[in-house]
Nucleic acid binder design. Structure first.
Length: 347
DNA sequence: CGTTTTTGACCAGCGC
DNA sequence: GCGCTGGTCAAAAACG
């Protein structure tokens, strides 16, 4: 591992409250081009292609669109996570995070020993405590209402119940992506339904909804104001459908890795997940042969590469296990993760 | 013409 | 209660 990569790892664009990381899940797949800390360097290196799809990255390739979530072991007791991914792309990125995690349950406190550049764990704990207080408060209010009786109270009660139901949020998973474009292609079709200015940030936040009927998955896309080259994509909910067969300028379900990712020795920032037990695996060796030769960057026309990729035999990694999250390699069969040594040493 | 994006308005939660 | 902020709605505009 290079020093640059180390720097990249410890770059912390989320120590502020911009991401609301304590509610979310952030995963980090930083690549070998640690430009997060040095964006002054022009992209003069060859960007072989700049299109990728996490759809396949995080799905096993099986037809079970919920498999990744299952494999990831996300449950009501799972702490939030946040991925960060360097894509170094100009073309859309595919990122099927929503389907990846396919979550339905609420998040619960994260393990307190999670070392985090994101400061998510302690914040999460505090937040949950706060949530609990709020919940207690509400319960007391409801109790009062019931005890006092009366029609008006009933109405308020109903309203309150509705509120509570409405407030139940799907868990969220946020990805950091080093990208020049905001909305990253991820294999699903999204309709933008809102855009808001973000406090303390010159960059707006966009709100998208999955266009598939009865699918309630949403995602938010915003650019980090601390590192404008980084896009923060937050998924909420679980897709109840497969990838659309027809996609705009995309290959349905196709997964194309950018070289930066492929050579990334993809690593996971594990602090939110308990931070530690990633075995040392190499990633580079699993790049499908000839993968770099497809025509990404030319806009579309990448079916051949997908075909090639899909035909590639990827080395399964059985040992990769994330505490509380299950086997990540089931989700990311083409990738191995290197553990940042420092993450082993809990502060 | 159907779909998607834009954008101002609206609402809810929260802190003061 | 008021103001701020995040999130959503929905009509109009833009797009393919």
């Amino acid at each position: 591992m290079s020093e640059d990569q180390r720097q990249l790892y410890y770059h912390d664009p989320f120590h502020d409250d911009q991401l609301q990381a304590n509610h979310e899940t952030l995963f980090s797949f930083f690549g070998p081009n640690p430009t997060l800390t040095d964006d002054s360097s022009p992209p003069n290196h060859q960007r072989v292609h700049n299109y990728m799809g996490l759809t396949r990255l995080f799905s096993t390739g099986s037809s079970d669109y919920n498999t990744p979530a299952t494999n990831f072991g996300y449950s009501s007791s799972s702490p939030p996570l946040l991925f960060a991914l360097e894509v170094d792309q100009k073309q859309p990125l595919a990122a099927d995070i929503g389907n990846l995690f396919g979550v339905t349950a609420e998040t619960t406190p994260v393990t307190p020993n999670s070392s985090s550049a994101l400061s998510t764990s302690t914040d999460q704990a505090a937040d949950d405590e706060h949530d609990q207080l709020q919940q207690d408060k509400k319960e007391n209010q409801l109790k009062d209402l019931v005890e006092n009786g009366g029609d008006s109270s009933k109405k308020v009660l109903i309203k309150q119940k509705k509120k509570d139901e409405k407030k139940k949020r799907e868990p969220r998973f946020a990805f950091m992506t080093k990208s020049e474009i905001d909305h990253l292609e991820d294999g699903y079709r999204w309709r933008k339904y809102g855009q808001k200015a973000v406090k303390n940030s010159p960059y707006p936040r966009s709100y998208y909804r999955c266009t598939t009927q009865k699918c309630t998955v949403k995602k938010r896309v915003e650019r980090s104001y601390q590192d404008p080259s980084t896009v923060i994509t937050t998924y909420e909910g679980k897709h109840n459908h497969h990838l659309p067969s027809t996609l705009r300028g995309n290959v349905g379900g196709g997964m194309l890795y950018p070289p930066s990712m492929m050579a990334a020795q993809g690593r996971l920032m594990t602090e939110a997940a308990g931070g530690s037990s990633f075995p040392q695996h190499e990633f580079l060796g699993q790049i499908p042969h000839g993968f770099y030769n497809f025509g990404g960057g030319h806009g579309g026309g990448n079916g051949g590469a997908v075909s090639h990729y899909q035909q590639s035999t990827l080395t399964p990694i059985q040992q990769l296990q994330i505490p509380d999250y299950g086997l990540l390699q089931d989700m990311v069969p083409s990738m191995t993760f290197k553990q940042e040594p420092e993450f082993n040493q809990q502060a």
